[in-house]
């Protein structure tokens, strides 16, 4: 445990030094600007826009950080050869993967929590009351971050950091387009194509499972089973990704 902790702390600090938390200020400014400027367009919808926009932007910020920093987590260490002394210590490769994962994940968790608090405060300023219902979006947004970070680490474990970010973006798009994949599968008349589409639909990460933003903004009912299953889905998917990343990383050499 202490070995993972050391890597987690190290990764957290390294990433923190890139001044990521400054995004909080940008987030606050964005929200205020948007809520002021969209007001005249919104025609009575501005409370909704403030909510939609706040949730969307905080989620996008998290995803951006995953893709930008997550892709270089392992590569920076290899390119700068800082990983050499780490590999030579009695550390399992899996511990490095998990440590890197948790280190960046915790940082993003701090960031997103900060953004959620700012969001709530701005809602409070405008409406005189908090909207605690929206808080459910936070763990789900973090689940999405988890899965994406797992994907980036998986690709980092064998390909370049550029490749890893591109794959991250592709999986992000696919992951949110999965309802359309299902639609395609449902409607496809070619049986083979239909089954291939279904297999992809069920195997590829379905990031829409973590997207409850609309339901939350409109206070629509969300079945608690859906919440529970989505939670399990995110966790198990992440475990799978990290497991595969570890297997690949164990074979990796440092030339």
């Amino acid at each position: 445990m202490h070995r993972i902790r050391a890597i987690v702390e190290n990764t957290f600090k390294e990433s923190l030094r890139q001044r990521i938390l400054n995004l909080l200020i940008i987030f606050a400014i964005l929200l205020i600007v948007v809520s002021i400027f969209l007001e005249p367009f919104a025609i009575g919808e501005s409370p909704k826009i403030l909510r939609d926009f706040g949730l969307a932007v905080s989620s996008i910020f998290g995803v951006l950080i995953v893709i930008i920093i997550g892709s270089s987590l392992i590569h920076k260490d290899i390119e700068k050869r800082t990983i050499y002394t780490v590999i030579a210590k009695p550390v399992k490769r899996g511990e490095i993967i998990v440590g890197k994962f948790l280190g960046l994940f915790f940082l993003i968790a701090v960031l997103e929590t900060g953004m959620t608090i700012i969001h709530q405060i701005i809602i409070f300023i405008y409406e005189g009351a908090f909207d605690p219902h929206l808080l459910i979006a936070l763990p789900f947004s973090l689940l999405e971050v988890m899965v994406l970070l797992g994907i980036l680490l998986l690709f980092s474990s064998f390909s370049s950091s550029t490749m890893a970010s591109i794959m991250g973006i592709i999986f992000f798009i696919i992951g949110h387009g999965s309802p359309d994949l299902k639609l395609f599968a449902d409607q496809s008349k070619v049986v083979l194509l239909k089954y291939i589409a279904y297999v992809f639909y069920y195997i590829l990460p379905n990031l829409e499972n973590f997207n409850l933003r609309i339901e939350l903004v409109y206070k629509l009912p969300v079945h608690h089973d859906q919440i529970l299953f989505s939670l399990c889905y995110g966790l198990i998917y992440t475990i799978l990704l990290l497991y595969v990343a570890t297997i690949i990383f164990e074979k990796r050499e440092f030339k």
Binding site: Y201, I203, N206, N209, F229, S230, Y233, I236, L240
Partner: peptide, 13 residues
């Protein structure tokens, strides 16, 4: 794990 994931995905849907 993939089977578990597919199953969960199905249940969520």
């Amino acid at each position: 794990l993939f089977f578990l994931i597919a199953n969960l995905s199905y249940r969520i849907d």
